[in-house]
Simulated scan of single mutants.
Amino acid sequence: MEEPVRISKLLAERGICSRREADSYIERGWVLLDGKPVTELGTKALPSQELTLSKSAQTVQTARVTIVLNKPVGYVSGQAERGYRPAVSLIQAQTRYRGDDAPLRFSPAHLRGLAPAGRLDIDSQGLLILTQDGRVARTLIGEDSTVDKEYLVRVQGRLAESGLALLNHGLELDGRKLKPARVVWQNADQLRFVLREGRKRQIRRMCELVGLKVVGLKRVRIGDVRLGDLPVGQWRYLRRGERIG
């Protein structure tokens, strides 16, 4: 028999919104259970019941923005730390990519609640996605995420005979096995990594385990979103048709 589950959890599991957003919508009466508004936090429902959002909630979701940034080395992905600036501080009208053809006009409101969906460490450069939309964040950093993240990694050192195979599958970090990856040589000193997880400093630590030192790391793709010709330190809005997952 089915067990009742908190509505906020069901909405998040179905990719409709995040749990935090769900609670906010419930308080406003914007969540419909079998067509009737839910207004009490903590309300539960059976997984087989129909859950939808009101038009008001859908309008709010549509207005939320997702931004693609080419993060420079020296900026942290999240909150400012040790005197280093956060990547979100680069999102300004004057740093918007001139080639951005999105019809949106930059507004300070687009910074409200804007947060990175995933990490890119301070020593790394490249594609960072920041969003106001909990659905996008969950797609990228949820435990069940299957979104590819692609990196170009310059290395020094000599790779052991079995090293490339181990990078693809067979390593573990912090006592947990890593998911299979796709790792190939791009040229004599650069590897191409495609991962579906993002543990802290994962690529650097993977390389250390097989005798390599990372001297440069750039993320060039997340899902269908590519860094392309976006200049370092500049940003653009997510384009229509670009799929993250």
Rank of each mutant, 00 (worst) to 15 (best):
M206E: 00
I26F: 09
G233W: 07
L195T: 02
H110A: 09
T62Y: 03
I244N: 02
K177L: 05
F106P: 12
L173V: 10
V153P: 01
L11R: 06
P4D: 11
D121Y: 09
P4T: 08
S48V: 07
T52I: 00
A102Y: 10
D229E: 15
D123W: 09
D174Q: 13
Y237E: 03
L114P: 09
S162Q: 14
L114Q: 08
E13V: 08
K55V: 04
P108M: 04
V194T: 15
P4R: 06
R201C: 01
D133R: 08
S18P: 13
A45Y: 03
A137W: 01
R204W: 09
E21T: 01
R135N: 09
R196S: 02
R182S: 13
R182D: 06
G74K: 08
K177S: 14
I141M: 11
E197A: 04
I26A: 11
V73L: 01
R205M: 09
P4F: 02
A102S: 15
L90S: 12
D229P: 05
D123A: 15
P86I: 04
S162K: 14
G163I: 06
G29H: 09
E208C: 07
V73I: 14
H110Q: 14
D189M: 01
L128Q: 04
K9R: 14
L173C: 13
A57R: 04
V31E: 00
T59S: 09
I122C: 07
R219K: 07
I67R: 03
R105S: 13
R192V: 00
A45V: 04
R205K: 11
G216I: 06
W235P: 11
A87K: 02
L51G: 08
V155R: 06
P116D: 13
Q94C: 01
R196N: 14
N70S: 08
G198Q: 05
L53W: 08
A115M: 14
R85E: 13
K218S: 00
L53V: 08
V214W: 11
R14W: 11
Q58S: 05
Y97Q: 00
Q61K: 10
K177R: 12
S48D: 07
L128D: 11
L51C: 02
R201F: 00
A22R: 01
L173H: 07
G83L: 08
T131P: 12
R192C: 05
T52Q: 05
V183D: 03
S18L: 04
I129A: 07
R176M: 06
I222A: 06
S8D: 15
E143D: 14
K213D: 14
L217K: 10
G170F: 06
L217A: 01
E50K: 11
T39Q: 11
R176I: 11
T139K: 14
A45C: 10
D148E: 15
R20H: 03
V31W: 00
D23P: 09
Y25V: 02
I7L: 14
E2R: 13
S162E: 15
T139G: 06
E40G: 03
